[in-house]
Design a protein around this nucleic acid. Structure first.
Length: 595
RNA sequence: GCGCCGGUGGUCUAGUGGUAGGACAUGAGCUUCCCAAGCUCAUAGCCCGGGUUCAAUUCCCGGCCGGCGCACCA
């Protein structure tokens, strides 16, 4: 029944979908997947605590991500602070671009982005960078009215709202700090050291799993939009000229692509292309983006995302962030809405350039050529003892201009004099005083500022997706059943162990088996309370894929029954082989039907 | 942030100007040889603050939280 009730594209608000979401929300609360934080004090919007089931589920997904995107790719992982000084976000652009100017309409109480109003009604393009007071004046001067109700907005205050949580580092307010709105900057600011650890060899990747914070105006929809969330990010640093991803490893993976041109055509349909086809046809421009879309697609499936409710959507040109050249979002369908669970952005050298500019440090790597190359380089060595007396105070500027001219236009030095312009004044300099020469220089490499390809995963949204996509209802022997069909590898608990009866030694035996399985590294729940069917259902609700029951035959023949969650089928397995068998089942190296 | 609606045990709910009833779940016991059976008992609740009132879970105001719509989502 997994794919049978799949909604189409677009939004649905009918009761079937909504009530399914309600039942999942009820299950999540009741069984401890996630709970509202500090509810005894009335709760606080946009903050959730992962409960006893949600935490291992989230951890499993995180571990699986780390295994694929860090360990198996040979990437590094770091763990940066969540608080960073102001300079970091000044450089990254978050201080400006995260700072919205809100203006409330006195007529309809609607709130609008003041900078957008200015951009829409004047020929000013970047009102975002103007001070709020000036934006307010522009609105008054241009008689801008509310786009909703038409009331004049002149004189209304423009309020600032920054999505970053602000704090102070140390006593007083002299050193403001911010909770990071994304984990990425923690990697970028330490790029010089990280490049050193990578022995300056491009390409290399740096991953980070951690919390990020955004003071959202309006948190919504459980884990979808929250104020504190977990990201798993990978910053892949590449030489854009030469580095190629190992595309052959994912060339045949089929991607459900919803490209910008399809969105603009508004046909609503995704197009399935293999990674290779998408690259060859130019639908995906960057091979690196294509590589990660391929790698991630199979990963999503492995953690339990329903691939019939999944797509890769390309950002529309107007939607792209200030830093991104191309961006694809992985989206999953939750309750009729498409939710971004991952952004795959080609960030170019934007971030490293910004931090280089603001810090004055070098954010490039020296890339050695295979063989040193000899180039002819025009140079100057001005004779300042001649230039000084001749040109006085501007002599130093003239020397700089000569050096610049030599690099750009060496032919200018062919005659008796060379003319340079400094501050709109022309100066004729005798070539013999410039020290002009063409030297043969051996270059062993060049400085390259890497480009960045960034897959950024929202772990909470993925946890929520897996819950929603795994949720099933069916009937067993005429009774309704709810269960979570999560893959065994990510299930919060791998196996439930029950004595058929809590007496006759069955309970002692079952406790012993549970202990053995725990010692073997399995995640085990022991339960002897209530009828056997009730215990199966308890485990079904939290997605436990296998249950082991110790019965009277166990005492005779030393075999137990293993019951599978989705099918409710049972097989007998020798107790001695139990731990190994369950380990294989969990890791997908053995199928239940093969027992 | 604005608008509409809502907030009763762990969960889902009934109801009320005189402080609350059910179902499920949970715990103990009995029963039970593989899928939420039955019986007994038990635990557990009116979001917060202010106002009106002899009396407020109930009515009014504000807050907090949630759902939906708008806006926002670098």
């Amino acid at each position: 029944m997994s794919g049978g009730d799949r909604p189409g594209t677009g939004h649905r608000t009918d009761g079937g979908v909504a009530s399914e979401i309600d039942r999942i929300a009820e299950l999540a609360k009741r069984r401890g997947f996630f709970i509202q934080t500090a509810s005894v004090y009335g709760g606080v919007g946009g903050f959730y605590t992962y409960g006893p089931q949600g935490t291992p589920l989230k951890d499993s997904i995180t571990d699986s991500w780390r295994d694929l995107f860090v360990t198996r790719q040979g990437n590094m992982e770091v763990d940066a602070p969540t608080v960073m000084p102001e300079a970091v976000f000044d450089a990254s652009g978050h201080l400006d671009t995260f700072d919205d100017m809100i203006l409330e309409c006195p007529g309809c109480d609607g709130s609008h982005r003041a900078d957008h109003l200015v951009e829409d009604n004047t020929d000013i393009d970047e009102a975002e960078s103007l001070p709020p007071a000036e934006v307010g004046e522009i609105i008054a001067d241009n008689d801008i009215v509310c786009p909703t109700c038409g009331v004049a907005l002149a004189g209304e205050p423009v309020e600032e709202f920054n999505l970053m949580f602000e704090t102070n580092i140390g006593p007083g307010t002299a050193s403001p700090g911010y909770l990071r709105p994304e984990t990425a900057q923690g990697i970028f600011v330490d790029f010089p050291q990280l490049a050193e650890y990578a022995r300056n060899q491009l390409p290399f990747g740096v991953a980070q799993v951690g919390r990020a914070y955004r003071n959202e105006i309006s948190p919504r929809k459980a884990l979808v939009r929250v104020r504190e969330f977990s990201q798993a990010e990978l910053e892949q640093f590449i030489d854009p000229e030469t580095d190629e991803p190992p595309l052959d490893r994912v060339a045949d993976v089929t991607l459900p692509l919803y490209a910008a041109r399809q969105q603009e055509a508004d046909d609503g349909g995704v197009k399935s292309l293999t990674v290779q086809e998408a690259v060859d046809s130019g639908v995906i421009e960057s091979d690196w983006i294509a590589f990660y879309l391929g790698l991630a697609r199979d990963w999503y499936e492995s953690i339990g995302v329903d691939m019939d409710r999944f797509r890769y959507r390309q950002h529309l040109p107007g939607e792209l962030s200030h830093y991104a050249a191309d961006c694809w979002d992985a989206e999953t369908e939750i309750g009729g809405d498409w939710v971004e669970v991952t952004g795959f952005a080609y960030r170019g050298s934007y971030d490293l350039d910004k931090h280089a500019d603001h810090s004055g440090e070098s954010f490039s790597v020296f890339k050695q050529y295979d063989e040193p190359v000899t180039v002819e380089r025009p140079t100057v060595d001005p004779d300042m003892s001649e230039l000084g007396p001749a040109f006085g105070g501007v002599a130093a500027d003239i020397a700089d201009a000569l050096a610049e001219r030599a690099g750009r236009d060496p032919d200018a030095f062919a005659g008796e004099t060379v003319t340079v312009v400094v501050d709109d004044e022309r100066y004729d300099v005798p070539v013999e005083h410039t020290g002009f020469a063409v030297e043969e220089v051996t270059e062993s490499g060049e400085h390259v500022t890497p480009h960045v390809v960034e897959p950024s995963f929202g772990l909470g949204r993925l946890v929520y997706t897996v819950l929603v996509h795994a949720y099933r209802e069916d009937q067993v022997d005429g009774d309704d059943r709810q269960y979570l069909s999560v893959p065994p590898a990510v299930a919060p608990t791998t196996v439930g162990v029950f004595p058929l009866m809590d007496r006759d030694g069955l309970d002692e035996y079952a406790r012993e088996v549970a202990g053995q399985l725990r010692s073997a590294g399995l995640s085990v729940t022991y339960d002897e309370a209530g009828a056997i069917g009730r215990r199966y259902r308890r485990q079904d609700e939290v997605g436990t894929p296998f249950c082991v029951t110790i019965d009277y035959d166990t005492l005779e023949a030393d075999t137990v029954t293993v019951r599978e969650r989705d099918s409710t089928d049972q097989r007998r397995v020798p107790t001695a082989e139990l731990a190994e068998t369950l380990g294989l089942l969990r890791d997908g190296d053995l199928l239940f039907d093969e027992l």
